[in-house]
Nucleic acid binder design. Structure first.
Length: 772
RNA sequence: UCGGGGAUCGUCUAAUGGCAGGACAGCAGCCUUUGGAGCUGCUCAUCAAGGUUCGAAUCCUUGUCCCCGAACCA
């Protein structure tokens, strides 16, 4: 992979679906519940959902999953669409699950009529008790098997409004003994006499997620329904709902396209977990309600609104999501990656200006006149031609510099100001520190310096920033740091214990050059200090308030000691889980129940060894097959066992031995060919794959296709020469010492020979050819 | 009667039986009118043990660890 970024697993699936003709059009959706603001975790999902649609010329809907009126609000609906668009994505349609309530209701009636759903009048606790547990099956309630007509009438009463909240629910009738708890007659509808932000008081029954979500996807003709890992268990139910209701895409929702014959399929990826960040909407809401932060858009919040106010750009966030990738591993992303994405983006776009946070007075003793100097807005590496402009800076006798930029007794390697030393004032020439003035307490209060005429012959220590004391602009600066000082704040039971007390420092002494006022509406860099932006809520032209977006990388400052990370406690649940039964135990069990299996196993232990006997005679299908194959060629028993154990599973893929076209006789014949050296193992494996799907006689196939092993030097030499000639760079690398490439060359030759070459000969000849 | 997922540099992520690659972080050097940026180089990984194969991160077996699932939430 040289330039093209490797495809993630979702795009690989989409490629395959397109190639197989399962879909002509790729349709995705981003389905947030409007019960809070979107955060960086949603940003990843948005980039995945909208990104895939964009990459394949498809469509992506923004669909509010608004099925629970007790938690959802218009404020959230509005913020979500604003944030999606701000991030840079335009929904093809903005839709609401609540718009489908009538269709969902009708489909539910259909389910009841077909005996696939029923109204259960058990209490909450009864339902829970009857559902069983992870290790015990559930049991039916006494309403489950009443006639459909009863349930239909009851469901209509639910809708009519005469029943109290919790009086009854509609459940799918699936399987109370299912090992997937989601399939144990899941709830479809519950009664909620609550005002809905969109449907008002039209409904008092509301569909559950597991019912509403697949139907919404199907109605909208979604091809790939992408969600996060915790919904893996819901996928089986997702498929059930679509199949059981027979829901079809709605013409007006698929924009005139022909509906796909393939129903929507759900795929799951790992949601974003970021160090030092809390992602739970419930906990985020609590921070807002408790006043720990100033609101959902507090610049310390991981919300898109907060990050926008903080000064992160949509490009930076998208590039971060790109950096993180999409996979199924449970992973925690280093927060440094976000910081990198933000700095990388701002470096290219933020004009450079000067500002001093903690001023120290400097008097230029040889300057009497007020003047103006100019400086470029960007350094040369960002703007080589200077096309992006300059600005003017007032220069006066009285200046301020950063207090940190002066040291009375500088350490080794100090590149700033010190008594007697010379530094350059950015864009304004060099100064020498002649005199240090202190107050009665001994604190340095003023530096008296000389502005040196150019060219400066003295040694210049470094460059520092400065601002005119009288013509600079006073402002408030808010220095933000991470909200939590624990790497995994979600693991803490009490949020208060992991809050970073220094997450906001307000600096009131700051003074910046006048150009900042007009330019800080978008991010700027105060050179050597950091990136800043005017606060969109509190900043006013006559009372500038700057937010620090992020610090500059600082290779000088010693890394501050990290707070001790809070160790995540192992969940109590995983500790009490029963160990799962191993495959070997299942096989043992099968033999205890089946005497024939047990007898074959006992006989095979001596002939084939304990491991092979266990694997071959642990289920009836494999055991029957193995017995027949070995009977056909008893001399090759061990080899047949080896192939059956190690190679046949791969040839079968996800399929079963019983469903394949492979016969015991064919396998025995194939093994015979390999054992005799008539064909190579590589050809044998290829043939096996074919036999598994199409069947056939291996001996005849070998003859018909000329698949006999090739080992003669005369036959192999030309192939080897061709491979070497085609890869001159690799040959040079190999001869330069990268001997690991031998495998690469052998592989190439094997492929070129169609697998027919004898590997031992190839190894020998290739090594010889490369040496010479 | 438990079921469903997942384990590759410190971190994130590639490699679908044939070169363990990239990015972030780290370290070193160069460069620099930002101790910024940039450039160059370096360090660093296949959960473990067996097996199959000329060749295994990849296939088989066993084991270990992590995540999810028993809301009238989504």
């Amino acid at each position: 992979m040289t330039d093209a970024r490797a495809k993630d697993f979702l795009r690989t699936i989409v490629d395959e679906d397109l190639a197989a003709g399962r879909h002509q059009h790729i349709a995705t959706r981003f389905p947030p519940e409007p019960n809070g603001y979107l955060h960086i975790g949603h940003a990843k999902a948005i980039c995945v959902d909208f990104g895939i649609a964009r990459d394949y010329g498809g469509t992506c809907n923004l669909r509010y999953d608004d099925t629970n009126p007790t938690k959802e609000e218009v404020e959230y609906v509005e913020s979500i669409e604003r944030d999606v668009r701000w991030l840079g994505f335009a929904p093809d349609r903005v839709l609401y699950a609540s718009d489908y309530f009538e269709e969902m209701y009708r489909l539910a009636e259909g389910l009841i009529e077909r005996g696939l759903a029923y109204v259960d009048e058990s209490t909450d606790d009864e339902i829970k008790a009857l559902r069983g547990s992870l290790t015990e099956p559930g049991r039916p309630s006494r309403w489950r098997d009443l006639p459909a007509a009863h349930h239909l009438a009851r469901f209509r009463e639910m809708r009519a409004g005469g029943l109290a909240d919790g009086a009854c629910v509609l459940r799918a009738k699936i399987d109370l003994t299912a090992s997937n708890m989601k399939m144990r007659d899941p709830l479809l509808y519950r009664i909620r006499h609550a005002h809905h932000h969109r449907t008002g008081d039209a409904w008092c029954i509301y569909p559950m997620y597991d019912y509403a979500h697949p139907l919404s996807d199907a109605l909208e003709g979604i091809s790939h329904s992408i969600c996060t890992l915790e919904f893996e268990n819901n996928r089986e139910l997702y498929d059930w709902v679509i199949a059981a209701t027979g829901v079809a895409p709605r013409a007006d929702l698929i924009g005139g396209r022909a509906p796909s014959k393939t129903p929507p399929r759900q795929y799951e990826f790992a949601r974003l977990v970021l160090e030092y960040t809390m992602m739970s909407k419930r906990k985020l809401l609590k921070l807002v309600q408790d006043g720990v932060v100033a609101g959902w858009d507090d610049p310390r919040m991981p919300t898109l609104a907060g990050m926008r106010r903080r000064g992160f750009t949509p490009e930076a966030i998208r590039s971060f999501c790109e950096l993180v990738g999409v996979a199924k591993n449970n992973s925690t992303v280093d927060v440094g990656k976000l910081e990198y994405a933000v700095r990388d983006d701002l470096n290219a776009r933020a004009p450079r200006l000067l500002g001093v946070l903690r001023p120290l007075a400097v008097t230029l003793t040889n300057v009497t006149e007020a003047s103006i100097v100019t400086g470029p807005l960007f350094p040369e590496d960002i703007d080589p031609t200077g096309a992006r402009g300059r600005r003017e800076l007032p220069l006066d006798r009285a200046l301020v510099i950063e207090a940190d930029d002066f040291a009375e007794a500088p350490p080794a390697g100090w590149k700033r100001l010190a008594p007697g030393r010379v530094v350059r004032l950015r864009h304004a020439g060099c100064v020498r520190c002649d005199e240090v003035i202190k107050d009665a307490a001994g604190a340095v209060v003023e530096l008296r310096c000389t502005l040196l005429p150019e060219p400066v012959t003295e040694k210049v220590a470094g460059v520092i920033h400065w601002v005119s004391a009288s013509r600079g602009v006073r402002c408030e600066v808010r220095l933000y740091d991470r909200l939590f000082n624990a790497a995994k704040p979600d693991a803490a039971e009490d949020v208060a214990t992991v809050l970073n007390p220094k997450s906001l420092e307000i600096v009131t002494t700051a003074i910046v050059e006048p150009a900042v006022v007009a330019r800080a509406k978008t991010p700027i860099q105060l050179e050597r200090v950091g990136y800043f932006i005017a606060d969109e809520v509190d900043s006013r032209p006559d009372a500038l308030v700057l937010n620090r977006v992020i610090t500059l990388r600082d290779s000088w400052a010693a890394a501050a000691a990290e707070a001790a990370p809070v160790v995540a406690k192992k969940s109590a649940r995983s500790a009490t889980r029963p160990d799962r039964k191993s495959a070997r135990e299942y096989r043992d069990e099968a033999r205890r129940r089946d005497e024939v299996l047990a007898a074959r196993h006992a006989a095979a232990v001596d002939a084939l060894g304990a491991d092979a006997a266990d694997l071959l005679h642990g289920d009836r299908a494999t055991s029957d097959f193995a017995s027949a194959a070995i009977a056909a060629a008893p001399a090759q028993a061990k080899a047949i066992a080896r192939w059956l154990i190690n190679e046949v599973p791969r040839a079968l893929g996800d399929g079963e031995l019983a469903d394949s076209a492979l016969t015991p006789a064919a396998l025995a014949a194939l093994v015979g060919l390999c054992d005799a050296g008539t064909i190579t193992a590589a050809v044998g494996k290829e043939l096996l794959a074919e036999l598994a799907t199409q069947g056939g006689d291996p001996v005849a196939l070998v003859d018909a296709r000329g698949l006999r092993q090739v080992a003669a030097t005369d036959d192999l030499a030309p192939i080897i020469a061709a491979v070497l000639a085609a890869n001159p760079a690799k040959v040079a690398e190999y001869r330069g010492g990268k001997t690991g490439l031998l495998g690469f060359f052998v592989g190439q030759v094997m492929k070129a020979s169609g697998g027919k070459a004898n590997p031992a000969s190839v190894n020998q000849l290739v090594a010889a050819a490369l040496a010479g």
